[in-house]
Computed example of a mutant assay.
Amino acid sequence: MKSDNQIQEPMNVALYARVSTGRQENEQTIESQLDEVKRKIAEDGNTLLPQNIFIDDGWSGELLARPSLDNLRDAAKDNSFEAVYVYDRGRLSRTFFHQELVISELSDLGIQFISLHDVKATTPEEKVLQSMQGVFHEYERIKIAERMRRGKMYHAKEGKIINGQALYGYSYKKREDGNVDYLINHDEAGVVRKIWNWFGNDNLAVHTIQRKLFDLKIVPQKGKSDFWSKSVITRLLKQETYVTGKAFYNKSEAVVAKHPMNNGKYKKVKKSSRKVKSREDWIPFDVPRIITDYSLYEKVQKKLEYNRVYANKKSKYDYLLSGLIYCGCGNKRVGDGCSKNGHFYYRCIDRIRSGVYERKCKSS
Rank of each mutant, 00 (worst) to 15 (best):
S3C: 08
D4M: 10
Q6F: 12
Q8M: 11
M11H: 02
N12P: 02
N12C: 08
Y16K: 00
V19S: 00
E27Q: 11
L34G: 00
V37T: 08
K38L: 10
R39C: 12
A42G: 13
A42D: 13
L48A: 08
Q51T: 04
D56R: 06
G58T: 06
W59I: 08
S60I: 08
A65V: 15
S68G: 10
D70N: 11
D74Q: 13
S80P: 02
S80L: 01
D88Q: 02
R89Y: 06
G90N: 09
R94E: 08
R94L: 03
T95C: 04
F96T: 04
F97Y: 15
Q99H: 01
Q99T: 02
E100R: 02
I103E: 03
S104I: 00
D108S: 09
I111Q: 00
K127F: 11
V135D: 15
H137Q: 11
E138L: 04
R147C: 03
K152L: 10
Y154V: 15
A156R: 01
A156L: 07
G159D: 10
K160I: 03
I161P: 02
G164D: 01
A166Q: 05
G169M: 03
L183K: 09
I184V: 09
H186I: 12
D187I: 07
E188Y: 07
A189M: 03
V191F: 01
R193V: 13
G200Q: 09
G200R: 05
D202Y: 14
T208N: 14
G223V: 13
K224P: 04
K224R: 05
S231H: 06
Y242N: 10
T244G: 10
V255S: 06
P260S: 03
P260K: 05
K265Q: 14
Y266W: 04
R274P: 12
D281N: 13
W282E: 09
I283Y: 01
D286Y: 13
I290F: 10
Y294D: 06
Y297I: 08
N307S: 06
V309I: 09
K313W: 09
K316P: 02
L320Q: 11
L320K: 11
L320D: 09
S322K: 01
S322E: 00
C329A: 03
G330S: 05
V334G: 01
G335C: 01
H343D: 14
F344G: 13
F344L: 15
F344T: 07
F344P: 13
Y346L: 03
C348E: 08
C348F: 07
I349G: 13
R351A: 12
S354M: 15
G355P: 12
G355R: 06
V356G: 05
K360A: 10
S363W: 10
S363G: 12
